[in-house]
Design a protein around this nucleic acid. Sequence first.
DNA 1: CGAAATAATGATATGCTGTATCATTCTTGG
DNA 2: CCAAGAATGATACAGCATATCATTATTTCG
Lengths: 153, 153
Amino acid sequence: MSRVQIAINHAESSCKARGAKLTNKRKQVLSGLLQSNKARSAYQLVDYCKDEFGETLPPMSVYRILDFLQDEHLVHKLKSANKYIACAHINCDHAHGVSQFLICNQCEVVKEITINKSTINGLQRNVEDAGFHLASPQLEINAVCDSCKNRAA
Amino acid sequence: MSRVQIAINHAESSCKARGAKLTNKRKQVLSGLLQSNKARSAYQLVDYCKDEFGETLPPMSVYRILDFLQDEHLVHKLKSANKYIACAHINCDHAHGVSQFLICNQCEVVKEITINKSTINGLQRNVEDAGFHLASPQLEINAVCDSCKNRAA
DNA sequence: CGAAATAATGATATGCTGTATCATTCTTGG
DNA sequence: CCAAGAATGATACAGCATATCATTATTTCG
Ligand SMILES: [Zn+2]
Ligand SMILES: [Zn+2]
Ligand SMILES: [Zn+2]
Ligand SMILES: [Zn+2]
């Protein structure tokens, strides 16, 4: 069974456990994100579903599906890119906290990580010192991946 | 002389020092950002210039002007909001490094800060451990300002 | 000064991202 | 089967941004 198929099956179970349904079209959109190590836009997913499944989803439906998938914690939105990516922990059963996203500015590959507690604490202290309160430590970090770094060298 | 006027004068000098010109329209757009403690979109600035100066700038021009102002380090773009904000150090003569932006998710007020070196180092270590290289520590942080926090309480 | 070059701005069209609204179809429970 | 609710579709529109070509303003230099 493919990596994507495994993730979709797992997602289907966890949806069911939460009383939600992972319909066919939702699976198609999710698979579009699971296929890719880069984030994809709603309209790119429209194209993907068309090309891959001959399914002509209206953009509105894709946005609704993306909302659903986010509610189910299967997908994250990258605000700085206006794109979406499958959760890296989609096969994990433990609830996952807030992640950070490393985005390669060369090849656009995205990696979801959890930076360590002490760094988050440091960040939070800085925010407090400035008279603000950290609402969410979800960060989208402008980086370069190893491959691109090596290619440049 | 108003706070805004002082900043504009300073900006004009620093542009001149760099061989660039802070034209009238560029001043108008910049003043639209200096007026506000929130970030503003290009189209909001079109409206501002129209209301404030009777100047009907086409959006294209505003975008060009914003690019110019960014090149001159007078303005920052918040990618997660698709909006622009005047640099908090616009009156400083020292070159400023990369900033972080605290964005209140209630009232949208924005504060430009510099988080401390050790936190940045911690962040950088985390990024390296994930097989990436930090390209820029500009962060846009989802936070709540003190006023909004107190208002909620 | 006046022509040529350069910089700045304008006009128009278009593309991408996202939402609002109302209609239709599908699924489910009684 | 039927009613209720969930999911999806259709259409329109708003906001952000860029591409391209035209025009105007400013500078440069003989
Ligand atoms: Zn995740
Ligand atoms: Zn890369
Ligand atoms: Zn700044
Ligand atoms: Zn606030």
